[in-house]
Simulated scan of single mutants.
Amino acid sequence: MCSHRYFLYFAYIGKSFRGSQRQINRNLSKIDDPLSIQGRLEMGLKLLNPTNEPIVIMSSRTDAGVNAFGSTCHVDLIRNNEIGFDPPTITLCLNKYFEREDVPIRILKTYNVPETFHCRYNALSRTYLYRLMIAPANAENLNIHYRYIPIEEWRRCLFFCTDTFDIEKMREGAKLFEGYHDFRTFMGKNKQPGYKLTRREVEYITIKKIERPGYSSYSWPPFTKTEDYLFLDVYMKSKGFLYRQVRRTVAALIALARSKIEVRDIKLMLEVPSRYSWYPQIKILPAYGLYLCEVEYGKDDLDTFRTELPLST
């Protein structure tokens, strides 16, 4: 029987999951894993009744609690009649399953792709976003009014109050991370055995000041001075990232902007790559403010997606 490879774009809210990667041993693939993104995708694909056990290959690994606007994966499926599944049918089946089970995953698009395509190895880059919402702490008569956060933003961004935040200093520090460096200092504790290569090339870090989120006017009580709030989107792009590299990098930039560390301290952490170079004044950021925005592919791959392969063998 002939297998067909399918490529899926999808989004998710990570709060309900222990991570994107399947947590149960691959040798036990027939056992469902509802607490990972990969596991839930495989559970949904079984509803199509393929003759093989669906094994989803993820393009990117995200930690527990991390979200995604546009992640990708691929999977090989076999049918008895050797005719592939219609891609929109896969999208519809999975989204119905996620809706019925109240699972915060949504398939955005499904494509037929050649069997030579690999969602992880063909990826050119990955772009992440960390969202910040900052309230003033030096206003007259400081009270809870200045600490208000819209309920829509609760555990969707990092919210804090401060009387010291220098965005230009933050941007200055961000430039130091761009280019090819050894980011061992900015890697979380490696749980995998053996030596880990920690050199990566960061294409850019962009810090964008944005207007307040476009929620209903009722999200902001009349007593709240929204113009005093600072909303920042921090984007990082690279071919690949180390474990917790994005969260630790943004944490260092926030510490710099709040004058808890200096530019020379970031230079030292990059020039002396070691977990012992990490400054204890830097607080690691929570996962819920982090979003995988895009997994980028080359023009040849995109042309294949747009063309879509015929279903018949």
Rank of each mutant, 00 (worst) to 15 (best):
residue 2 C to H: 14
residue 5 R to A: 04
residue 5 R to Y: 10
residue 8 L to E: 06
residue 8 L to T: 03
residue 11 A to V: 04
residue 12 Y to R: 01
residue 21 Q to M: 11
residue 21 Q to C: 05
residue 21 Q to K: 11
residue 26 R to A: 10
residue 28 L to S: 02
residue 31 I to S: 01
residue 39 G to C: 00
residue 43 M to R: 04
residue 44 G to E: 02
residue 46 K to S: 09
residue 56 V to L: 01
residue 71 S to E: 13
residue 73 C to I: 05
residue 74 H to V: 02
residue 78 I to D: 14
residue 79 R to Q: 15
residue 80 N to E: 15
residue 81 N to Y: 12
residue 83 I to L: 07
residue 89 T to K: 15
residue 90 I to T: 01
residue 96 K to D: 15
residue 97 Y to W: 14
residue 97 Y to D: 10
residue 103 V to H: 05
residue 106 R to A: 15
residue 107 I to D: 03
residue 110 T to N: 15
residue 112 N to P: 12
residue 124 L to H: 06
residue 125 S to K: 08
residue 127 T to Y: 07
residue 127 T to M: 11
residue 131 R to H: 10
residue 132 L to I: 04
residue 132 L to M: 08
residue 136 P to C: 05
residue 139 A to H: 10
residue 141 N to R: 07
residue 143 N to H: 11
residue 150 P to D: 07
residue 154 W to C: 15
residue 165 F to I: 02
residue 168 E to D: 11
residue 170 M to H: 01
residue 171 R to G: 00
residue 178 E to G: 03
residue 178 E to R: 00
residue 179 G to N: 02
residue 181 H to K: 05
residue 182 D to L: 05
residue 185 T to A: 03
residue 191 K to P: 00
residue 194 G to K: 00
residue 197 L to I: 04
residue 198 T to Y: 03
residue 199 R to E: 14
residue 201 E to Y: 09
residue 203 E to A: 00
residue 208 K to I: 09
residue 211 E to M: 08
residue 214 G to Y: 03
residue 216 S to M: 08
residue 217 S to A: 13
residue 221 P to S: 09
residue 224 T to M: 06
residue 225 K to S: 07
residue 230 L to T: 14
residue 238 S to V: 12
residue 239 K to P: 09
residue 244 R to T: 07
residue 247 R to P: 13
residue 247 R to C: 12
residue 254 I to Y: 04
residue 258 R to H: 00
residue 265 D to K: 06
residue 267 K to W: 05
residue 268 L to T: 14
residue 274 S to V: 04
residue 275 R to M: 13
residue 280 P to F: 09
residue 286 P to L: 06
residue 287 A to V: 13
residue 289 G to R: 03
residue 290 L to W: 08
residue 292 L to S: 09
residue 296 E to M: 07
residue 300 D to A: 12
residue 302 L to F: 04
residue 304 T to Q: 12
